[in-house]
């Protein structure tokens, strides 16, 4: 019953991913770890494609993950699972909106949630990124450890960090496409 499980996992994601955008990343990373649906590296690919195509990132990621796991039906189940809690919660919130908006309780809960989301995304991002920067060969010998470091990837990482800071008006798509070219030229997949 993989479709039901997809629906359930993304229902959970939709219910607990607060803050939009990459808020779904920790949940996808957790799925990569606990199921054999897709790998952590695939999650990075999903982000790239979700950022480079129209539509909300969370929806794109759910569709991609669902399709990778169980084809077209999978993509539908994952996406419906993701938006289902939103629709229910929003309709409920709409009815009590005036009370909800300025509520001290809601403010306090968000005071705690915002830093937590930063921590969650940082950890998930780091765990998914590190195999791209260091490929541990299994030996703790200093020489082989130095050899494990993907220097080109680290240079690209630092360069992109400053370029994106400097040209922050440009769409991420530009940087993603440029990185693809660098990856092909320097054989990053090898």
């Amino acid at each position: 019953m993989i479709l039901l499980k997809l629906f359930y996992e993304f229902f959970k994601t939709g219910l607990f991913a607060v803050g939009g955008g990459l808020a779904t990343l920790p949940f996808l990373y957790n799925m990569a770890e606990t199921t054999n649906w897709f790998t952590a590296e695939t999650v990075m690919d999903m982000i790239a494609i979700s950022e480079s195509t129209p539509g909300p990132i969370g929806v794109n990621m759910a569709t991609y993950a669902g399709f990778t796991t169980a084809g077209v039906l999978g993509s539908l189940c994952a996406t419906i699972g993701l938006v289902f809690p939103s629709v229910v919660v929003i309709i409920w919130v709409y009815k009590i909106m005036e009370k909800f908006k300025g509520s001290q309780l809601v403010q306090s809960v968000f005071y705690g949630l915002r830093p937590a989301v930063a921590g969650l995304i940082a950890a998930a991002g780091l765990q998914a990124l590190y195999p791209c920067l260091i490929r541990f060969s299994g030996s703790f010998d200093p020489l082989s450890l130095v050899g494990d470091i993907q220097w080109l990837a680290i240079i690209l990482f630092v360069a992109l960090y400053f370029l994106i800071k400097k040209f922050n008006k440009l769409h991420p798509l530009v940087f993603i496409a440029a990185s693809a070219v660098v990856g092909v030229l320097f054989q990053f997949g090898a």
Partner: peptide, 23 residues
């Protein structure tokens, strides 16, 4: 595979930026 090898590094930077904003 090579293209996505480069793209993953870029995604890492994009995630880092998002984290900085949230921070």
């Amino acid at each position: 595979q090579n293209a996505f090898g480069g793209i993953r590094v870029c995604v890492g930077v994009l995630v880092l930026n998002a984290v900085q904003k949230l921070w």
